[in-house]
Amino acid sequence: MILDLEKFIARQREVWRELDGLLGALERDPAARMDLGQVKRFHHLYQVTSADLGKLQSFACEPELKLFLESLVARAFGEIHDTPSGVSRVKVGRFFINSFPQAFRGRILAFWVALATMLAGFAVGAALLIVDPDAKEAILPFEQLVGSPSDRVAKEEQGQNRALEGKKILFSSELMTNNTRVAILCLAMGATFGIGTLILLFYNGVILGVVVLDYLRLGHTAFLVGWLLPHGSVEIPAILIAGQAGLVLGGALIGRRKSISLAQRLRGISSDLVILIGGTSIMLVWAGIIEAFFSQYHEPTIPYSLKIAFGAVELVLLVLFLTRKAPLAESSGRGGLRG
C-alpha cells in the first residue's frame, strides 16, 4: 500500500504548521514556559506528527516530506523529553552557597586523590631541591622565583621592590585570568582519563615544594607564610577543586561502574563539573584580588602576623563553607569518582 500523499498533506498540513509555530516560539525564547493547556496541545500535536511520520515511513517514500516531518519530530522530541534538573534553573547565589559545597562533598574522593597527588608533587619538589639546589632554575617557570629568597626578602622589607608600583589592578586581572585558565585546563585534562589532570596537579605540587623549601631552608618562614597564605589559602584549594572536577571526568570516562553506559555516566557528572568549575572561578577571582592588593605588601607595611592570621581565617572559613552539612544535591549524579 502506498499513501495518497496529496490527500495526506492536505489533511495534516495545519497540524504540522501549528507544531512548527509552537516550536519556533519556544526556540526564540529559551526561558519561555507553556501553561498546562499549551503543554497538552503541544503533546497532542507531537503525537499526531509522530504518527504521520510513522505512516510516511511505512507507506510512502517522499523524501522531502519525510525530512520535513523528521525535523519537526526531532525538534518536538527534545522539548517533550526535556529534563528539568540542571544548572539552567539554579540561581547564582543559591548555586554558590548550596550547590557548590554539595557537589564538592558529593565528589570528595576525587578531591582527596587531587590533594594526595599535589602533596606527592610537593614532596618530590622539595626532595629535588635538597638533592640538587641548582635544579631550581630548570623546575620553576617564573623568573621572579628563581633568584635568591634572601635577596627578595631584603628588597621587599626595605620597600625596594617597586615592580608592581601602579600596576596592581592589571596584575590582579592577569592573575585571575591566568589562574582560571589553569583551573579550566585541570578540568579539561580529565578528558585524558584523568592522567593529564594528575600530571598538572603533580607539577604544581613540585613547584610549590621547591618554592616552600627554598624559603624555609634559609629561615624566611614568616615571610613565606605571610606572602603565600592570604591568597594561597583560597587559590590552592581552588586548583585542587578544579583537579577534583578533572578527576571526576576521568573517572566517568574510565567507568568503575560497568553497568552504566558511558553516556549515562557522563550525563550524571556534567552538572557537578559545571558547579565545581563555576565555584572555582569565583574563588580564583577572590584570590587574584587578595594576591595583588594584600599578599604583595610585606613588613613593615603590614605585619606578617596579621597576614598569616588573615590567611588562616580564610582557610578555616573555606573549610567550614565546603564541609557544612546540607542535603546532597540531586544533581550529584550517577558516575565518576564519588566519596
Binding site: G78, D82, R181, L187, A188, A263, L273
Partner: peptide, 23 residues
C-alpha cells in the same frame, strides 16, 4: 549542537563542551 540522544541541550552540557576546547 544537540544532545546525543535528541533531548533538549542542558546548560551543563554547553559549559562542559566549551571548556573542553582547551584540550
Amino acid at each position: 549542537v544537540m544532545d546525543s540522544q535528541g533531548l533538549r541541550l542542558q546548560f551543563s552540557q554547553i559549559v562542559v563542551r566549551n571548556l573542553l576546547r582547551v584540550v
